[in-house]
């Protein structure tokens, strides 16, 4: 029990600190590396929440797929000029103040509602076997959204190819 609690706080701290580093580093490659650290600690949090399948999907798809795509684009785009310019825009203090207000509001609401929204905790092991349950639910109750997701991926693939293609002149 103590180990689960301690590891949650360690992982949460790692996730938040590296997320802060993502948005403050000047070099996008460093940001991408810190984003990978955040995604990895979130994947470990999913393991703690008995969501093994989501943790595996997070590692394979986010870290193995999307982040590699980001790093490829960073290599393709010439960033020498952008690295010497200021990394933040002029409205950063307005945006920071608004986001701070939003954070205080969110945490306040969550803290005040922690008692009223408390539902009985499910007993441990109630979501096992995880992958089998997800497969059954996905193919029995969520068949149509699943098909629509495949269509969305097809459209995104065609769109990405069309956008990044060199114009035939």
């Amino acid at each position: 029990m103590m180990f689960a609690q301690g590891s949650f706080y360690v992982l949460a701290a790692v996730a938040v600190v590296s997320a802060l580093l993502v948005i403050t580093r000047r070099n996008p490659v460093h940001s991408a590396i810190y984003l990978i650290v955040t995604l990895l600690s979130v994947a470990l949090l999913y393991l703690q929440l008995q969501a093994e399948f989501i943790a595996a999907v997070q590692i394979i798809l986010y870290i193995g797929g999307i982040m590699v795509l980001f790093l490829f684009v960073i290599m393709l785009v010439k960033l020498d000029v952008a690295l010497r310019q200021p990394p933040f825009n002029q409205q950063w203090w307005v945006a920071g103040a608004a986001a701070l207000v939003l954070a205080v509001e969110l945490v306040g609401v969550i803290y005040l509602g922690r008692g009223t929204a408390a539902l009985p905790q499910a007993p441990p092991g109630s979501l096992q076997p995880n992958t089998e349950l997800i497969g059954r639910t996905l193919y029995q109750n969520y068949m149509l959204p699943f098909e629509i997701a495949s269509l969305l991926l097809l459209v995104a693939m065609v769109g990405a190819v069309l956008m990044a293609r060199r114009k035939a002149s």
């Binding site: 955040t38 952008a82 933040f88 825009n89 920071g96 939003l102 954070a103």
Partner: peptide
């Protein structure tokens, strides 16, 4: 994490 993401979207160039 949501707030950090929002700050990043609004302030980075």
């Amino acid at each position: 994490l949501l707030t950090i993401g929002i700050i990043g979207v609004l302030t980075r160039r």
